[in-house]
Deep mutational scan, measured.
Amino acid sequence: DTFTFTLDGIEVRLHGASEELIKTIEELLKRDIRWEELEKWIREWEK
């Protein structure tokens, strides 16, 4: 599955994202998160 969203005018596609990761990103997007914050968060998630 591919999860697609737009952040700061950039279309982002995550391939093979888990349901948990998708739900977490959706929550972060509701908080009007900035790209830099999401990028940092995703790097931490990957560890």
Rank of each mutant, 00 (worst) to 15 (best):
D1P: 11
D1V: 13
D1L: 15
D1H: 14
D1T: 13
D1A: 12
D1E: 12
T2L: 11
T2S: 08
T2P: 12
T2E: 13
T2K: 05
T2Y: 14
T2R: 05
T2D: 15
T2H: 10
T2N: 08
T2A: 10
F3G: 00
F3S: 01
F3M: 03
F3P: 02
F3L: 04
F3D: 01
F3I: 06
F3T: 02
T4M: 09
T4E: 12
T4F: 09
T4L: 08
T4A: 09
T4R: 05
T4D: 08
F5T: 01
F5C: 03
F5D: 00
T6A: 04
T6D: 06
T6H: 10
T6E: 13
T6V: 13
T6K: 06
L7P: 00
L7N: 01
L7W: 09
L7I: 15
L7C: 06
L7K: 04
L7Y: 12
L7M: 07
D8W: 03
D8F: 04
D8K: 02
D8G: 07
D8R: 01
G9L: 06
G9Q: 04
G9R: 01
G9D: 08
G9T: 03
G9S: 05
G9W: 05
G9I: 02
G9H: 03
I10S: 03
I10G: 02
I10H: 15
E11F: 05
E11D: 06
E11Q: 07
E11M: 05
E11H: 06
V12G: 02
V12A: 02
V12N: 01
V12S: 01
V12H: 14
V12P: 00
V12W: 06
V12C: 08
V12Y: 15
V12R: 04
V12T: 03
R13W: 08
R13S: 15
R13Y: 11
R13H: 15
R13M: 14
R13C: 06
R13N: 13
L14S: 00
L14A: 01
L14V: 12
L14I: 14
L14K: 00
L14P: 00
L14F: 07
H15E: 15
H15I: 15
H15Q: 12
H15L: 09
H15M: 09
H15D: 14
H15A: 07
G16F: 09
G16V: 05
G16L: 07
G16Q: 06
G16R: 05
A17G: 04
A17L: 10
A17P: 07
A17Q: 03
S18G: 07
S18F: 03
S18R: 04
S18Y: 03
S18C: 04
S18E: 06
E19I: 14
E19G: 08
E19Q: 13
E19V: 15
E20C: 06
E20S: 09
E20N: 10
E20H: 11
L21T: 11
L21R: 03
L21E: 07
L21H: 05
L21Q: 09
L21P: 00
L21C: 04
L21G: 01
I22W: 03
I22V: 10
I22R: 09
I22A: 03
I22G: 02
I22M: 06
I22S: 02
K23A: 14
K23V: 06
K23S: 12
K23I: 08
K23Q: 11
K23D: 07
T24R: 14
T24W: 11
T24P: 00
T24D: 11
T24C: 08
T24S: 15
T24M: 15
T24F: 12
I25E: 00
I25L: 08
I25W: 01
I25T: 01
I25N: 00
I25M: 02
I25K: 00
I25A: 01
E26G: 08
E26P: 01
E26T: 13
E26K: 15
E26V: 13
E26R: 12
E27Q: 11
E27G: 10
E27Y: 10
E27W: 08
L28Q: 05
L28S: 03
L28W: 10
L28G: 05
L28H: 05
L28C: 10
L29I: 13
L29S: 03
L29A: 02
L29Q: 02
L29V: 07
L29K: 02
L29F: 04
L29P: 00
L29C: 04
K30Y: 07
K30I: 09
K30P: 02
K30M: 10
K30A: 12
K30S: 11
K30D: 08
R31V: 08
R31A: 14
R31S: 13
R31T: 15
R31H: 12
R31F: 11
D32E: 13
D32Y: 05
D32G: 13
I33W: 07
R34C: 08
R34Y: 06
R34H: 10
R34F: 06
R34G: 11
R34K: 12
W35Q: 03
W35L: 11
W35N: 02
W35R: 04
W35K: 04
E36W: 08
E36H: 14
E36I: 12
E36Y: 08
E36K: 12
E36T: 14
E37V: 09
E37S: 07
E37F: 08
E37P: 02
E37G: 04
E37Q: 11
E37D: 11
E37L: 07
L38H: 00
L38I: 05
L38Q: 00
E39Q: 10
E39S: 08
E39F: 10
E39L: 10
E39D: 09
E39C: 08
K40N: 10
K40L: 11
K40C: 05
K40F: 10
K40G: 09
K40W: 09
K40A: 13
W41L: 14
W41T: 11
W41V: 15
W41S: 06
W41Y: 14
W41Q: 07
I42K: 01
I42W: 05
I42Q: 01
I42A: 01
R43A: 13
R43F: 08
R43K: 14
R43C: 10
R43G: 07
R43L: 10
E44W: 04
E44F: 03
E44K: 02
E44G: 02
E44N: 05
E44Q: 04
E44D: 13
E44V: 03
E44T: 02
E44Y: 04
E44I: 03
W45T: 04
W45C: 09
W45P: 01
W45Q: 05
W45S: 04
W45A: 06
W45N: 06
W45M: 05
E46G: 08
E46F: 14
E46N: 11
E46V: 11
E46K: 03
E46T: 06
E46L: 14
E46Q: 08
K47T: 14
K47Y: 14
K47I: 15
K47H: 14
K47L: 15
K47V: 15
